[in-house]
């Protein structure tokens, strides 16, 4: 009996460790998948403006038909990324998600009524300070997703959404 004890305990430890690793990896894998799907429509460090959500939309689960989404897959490995979000009178928000899916930053029409202007930094430092008025936000991971949500209940509001989108920025700081 004793000779089975050590292999048995070892098997239990391996099973528990594997289980923990799989659970921990799920959000990372799903984020990777979401980033990959987004990047099939463009490149990193640029806003990708989604079309109006319809019954045919299949990019992200449970999309809201009342929201206009813009997403930026950011990559800070070469340095900071400048993100700017144009404010609107109705609801809007910018949320940043790190590689493990944590929502580590949010700004919206209540907290930033004039819009958002930030430098997003990872491990690699910036070559100099940001311009006046631009705030620094640190991302826990070099890659992640920025997501703008703008309230748009009907097609008539979309010209306003498109005008705001033209002012948005997600770009590497050179």
């Amino acid at each position: 009996m004793k000779r089975y004890l050590v292999p048995l305990l070892l098997a239990i430890v391996v099973a528990v460790a594997t289980h923990a690793a799989v659970i921990e990896a799920i959000p990372v894998m799903l984020m990777r998948g979401a980033m990959s799907r987004m990047l099939s429509h463009g490149s990193s460090n640029q806003w990708l403006a989604a079309k109006r959500v319809t019954a045919q939309s299949r990019t992200v689960i449970r999309p809201s038909p009342e929201l206009a989404y813009s997403a930026c897959v950011y990559d800070l490995s070469q340095g900071p990324v400048h993100m700017r979000v144009q404010a609107m009178n109705d609801y809007w928000s910018l949320s940043l998600f790190e590689a493990n899916s944590d929502n580590f930053y949010i700004a919206d029409n209540r907290t930033a009524s004039g819009g958002v202007d930030i430098w997003l930094l990872g491990d690699r430092p910036a070559n100099g300070p940001p311009p006046a008025g631009v705030m620094i936000v640190r991302s826990p991971s070099d890659r992640g997703i920025g997501l703008i949500r703008r309230h748009a209940t009907n097609a008539a509001q979309w010209p306003q959404i498109e005008a705001a989108r033209r002012e948005d920025r997600c770009e590497s700081v050179q």
Partner: peptide
């Protein structure tokens, strides 16, 4: 949902059923 305080199981479930969800203040 969306909280950095979520445990690993909650984070895994939210990622599966509502990836990119906002936190409760929002």
């Amino acid at each position: 949902a969306g909280s950095t305080h979520a445990d690993v199981y909650t984070r895994a479930r939210i990622a599966r059923t509502g990836l990119l969800a906002l936190n409760r203040d929002e």
